[in-house]
Simulated assay, not measured.
Amino acid sequence: MVPLLLVLLLTLLLFGAGFALKILWLAAVVVLVFWLLGFVARGAHPSGGRHRWYRW
């Protein structure tokens, strides 16, 4: 009985980790797309100076 419970627990842990990793990969892709859009969409600064599209 105990080995069966351990196998079920391990299965649930691996399934949960796989789901979490998939969500993290999707979040990373979304951030990458926004970063690329910001990089491409940057325009000339109205004052004529150099313009950085990020604010750090």
Rank of each mutant, 00 (worst) to 15 (best):
A17N: 01
W56I: 12
A27E: 07
L9N: 06
A17Y: 08
L8Y: 04
G38S: 11
W25E: 06
F34R: 09
V2Y: 01
G38H: 07
I23F: 00
L12T: 09
F15D: 01
V31R: 11
L24R: 08
W25G: 00
R42L: 07
S47L: 14
L4Q: 09
H45D: 15
V30I: 08
L32R: 10
F19I: 02
M1P: 04
L21Q: 12
G49E: 04
W25A: 06
K22C: 01
W53N: 14
A20W: 11
F39N: 07
L9G: 12
I23G: 00
M1F: 09
F19C: 01
W53R: 11
L14T: 08
P3L: 00
R50S: 14
L9Q: 07
L12G: 05
G18T: 05
G18L: 03
L10D: 04
G18A: 04
F15L: 13
W35V: 13
A41K: 10
L32S: 12
G16Y: 01
Y54K: 11
P46C: 10
G49Y: 01
Y54A: 12
W35T: 14
A28W: 02
L10Y: 03
L36V: 15
V31L: 13
V29S: 06
Y54D: 12
L5N: 03
V30Y: 05
A41R: 10
M1H: 10
L26F: 03
F39S: 13
H51Q: 14
A17I: 09
A20L: 08
F34C: 08
H45A: 15
L37E: 08
L26E: 05
W56C: 11
A44I: 04
L36F: 14
G38V: 02
A27K: 10
G16L: 11
V40I: 15
F39G: 04
A41S: 13
R50Y: 09
L26S: 07
L32K: 09
M1K: 05
V31T: 11
V30C: 01
V31K: 13
R50N: 13
L21W: 11
M1D: 08
R42H: 14
L24C: 00
K22I: 00
H45N: 15
A20R: 09
L14K: 04
L26P: 00
M1G: 10
I23M: 01
L12S: 12
W25I: 08
G48M: 06
M1W: 06
K22L: 05
V7A: 07
L12A: 15
H45E: 12
M1C: 05
L37P: 00
R50C: 09
I23L: 03
A28L: 10
R42G: 11
G49W: 01
G48P: 00
G48I: 04
G43E: 07
L6A: 03
F34E: 03
P46R: 15
R52V: 13
A17P: 00
A20G: 00
L36T: 10
H45M: 11
W25V: 05
K22A: 02
L10M: 07
A27N: 06
A20T: 05
G43C: 03
G18F: 01
R52W: 13
V7R: 02
W56F: 15
L37T: 09
L37Q: 11
M1R: 07
L9H: 06
V7T: 05
L9Y: 07
R50F: 12
L37D: 08
L5I: 06
F19H: 04
